[in-house]
Structure formats: C-alpha cells, structure tokens
Amino acid sequence: MKISDLLRQDQVTLSFEVFPPKTSSSYESVAQATREIAALRPDFMSVTYGAGGGTSEHTMHIASDLHAQYGVNVLAHLTCVSSSRAHVAKMLASFQQQGIENILALRGDIPADGTTASDYHYAAELVRDIKAQGDFCVGGACYPEGHVEAVSKSEDIQHLKEKVEAGCEFLTTQMFFDNNILYNFLYRIREKGITVPVVAGIMPVTNVKQIKRITSMSGTYLPERFKAIVDRFGDNPAAMKQAGVIYAAEQIIDLIANGVNHIHIYTMNKPEIAAGIQASLSEILG
C-alpha cells in the first residue's frame, strides 16, 4: 500500500523506524529486533540507509524481509549526496523487484571529509529521479526547528517547498520535544502552500547518552519539563527508560488531540520501547 493513500484516510496511524546493522556480524540480532517490532503490526515501518549508502545491502534485505515475510508496509530510506545516479537507479530497480513502493528521499549527511558525489546536491533532485524511474510513493524529511545548515527558517521552508513541487507526497519530521514547535511549523508551511501530510517524528529518549548525542548533533530544544525528568531519573536507567516512554506517549496524546494524526516512532531498534508506546496508546489508537 502506498503510504500517501494511508495518510489520506481519516484515521490515526502509528509507524516505527528501524535501522540496519553497520556490519554483517550484527545482522541477525538487528533483524530479530526488527521482526519483533513488526509483530506489533504498525501501519508501516521505515528502514534507514547509512551515510554514503554504506548499509544499502542490509537496508534492502531488512526491508524486503519485513515486506515479504511479515506483510508490513515498508518505507525504505534512500540518500543521494554520496551516490551516483547509476547507484540510485540500481537501488530503485531492486526495490521495485522486491515489491517496495515507498521511498523516503533524503540528501543524507555530508561525509566528515567533505567528499560528495557530483550527481546530487539536494534531496529535490533525488525526488525527481525517483518519480521518473517508477511508480513510487516518495516522502521527504522536514525540520520543525529548521535544518542546521539553513541560513534561516524561511530559507529552509523554501527548500521544503521545492521538494514537494518535485514530487514529494508526504513529510516526516525530525524529532522534537516541544509540541508547540511543531504546531508553529505546521502553520508556517501551510501558509506557504505546503499541503502534503506531515508525519510527526517522536524519539523516546531513554538514557542520558541519547540526550547528549541529540543535542550535540542537532541542537534540538529541550523543554524545562524534559530537563527536570532527566535531572531526576538520569542516574536510574530503568526509571529513565520508563519516564522517556511516558513523556513520548504524552507528547503523542497531545498531538492527536490537536489533529496531528500520523506518528512515527524512532525506536532505536528497541522492541520494548515500541511496545511500550503502543501499549500506552491502545485505547487512543482503537
């Protein structure tokens, strides 16, 4: 099923993100975690794609396994900044062969040495290529707090509009911990004529290391209420995990109550986190 069709329905959706292993030696443990998450029967699952396509083979295997063996709607990530057009065409042909029709088109992170391929510079270029090479449903990323490389939020929204005009059919947000940031972002993009569905990306933060990594990489705003939870429970791993799941669930309840019906959980390949969120929303999801 195309995710764009799913998101047009008047219902709440809950989906999960998983990521492939970086090495073959850890493949089976990661695959087992993704199978346990698939057993929760989410509306769809996304499978990430390593920088420079470094995990492309594992992405393909996990995505095809989820689709063929577990009947899950799959959203396969595809990055382009370090890829050639030939490599992208090869990946798209493989996705088609496996029956995967949903692609999340991403520029990807610039490698640490600054080396990029010359074929792509922006996600909009990848979106156009995907649409030209098959009957794919294409999604894209968006940044409620603004992309870290954007000069301004207005410029970032202009780039977002270019992606949508290139054929992007829905958007998934970067993580955020204050729902007002998302509500303000939605108002601004709707005002600029961006009307495609937006899926809210939620990260249940369950340990202090995660928080430090998040803030150092993206500068994500942490509300005082969230900081208080970390201060109180950060030294108690079990309590921090429980508090992180509850905080994320409360975020989601507020989003749904305010008309944001599509929720995507960054699970970090932890089935117990996905299950905890889903259980907290059992009556709300229906």
Results as ranks from 00 to 15, higher is better:
M1I: 07
M1L: 11
R8Q: 15
V12I: 15
L14W: 07
S15F: 04
E17I: 05
F19T: 00
A31T: 01
A31H: 11
L40R: 06
L40N: 02
L40T: 01
R41C: 00
V47Q: 02
T48P: 06
Y49I: 10
A51P: 09
A51V: 12
G53R: 09
T55M: 08
T55G: 05
E57F: 07
M60E: 12
M60P: 04
S64T: 12
D65G: 03
L66C: 08
L66Y: 06
L66N: 06
Q69C: 11
Y70T: 03
A76Q: 01
C80S: 06
V81C: 13
V81P: 09
S83L: 12
S83E: 15
S83Y: 07
H87M: 11
K90A: 12
M91P: 07
A93H: 10
Q96G: 13
Q97H: 14
Q97G: 05
I100D: 00
I100V: 05
R107S: 01
D109K: 02
P111D: 02
A112N: 13
Y122C: 00
D129F: 11
I130R: 09
G139S: 10
A141E: 03
C142T: 14
P144K: 02
E145P: 10
V151H: 14
S152L: 03
H159A: 09
L160E: 07
K161A: 09
V164A: 03
T172I: 15
T173Y: 04
M175H: 10
M175S: 13
L182K: 01
L182P: 00
L186T: 08
L186P: 03
V198F: 01
V199W: 02
A200V: 05
G201V: 02
I202A: 09
P204C: 10
V205W: 04
K212D: 09
K212P: 02
I214M: 15
T215P: 06
S216N: 14
R225D: 14
K227D: 11
A228H: 08
I229E: 02
V230L: 14
P237I: 08
Q242S: 14
Y247L: 05
A248H: 04
E250V: 03
Q251E: 11
I256M: 14
A257V: 04
N258E: 12
G259A: 13
Y266R: 09
T267R: 10
M268N: 07
N269P: 11
E272I: 01
G276A: 12
Q278I: 02
I284D: 00
L285Q: 06
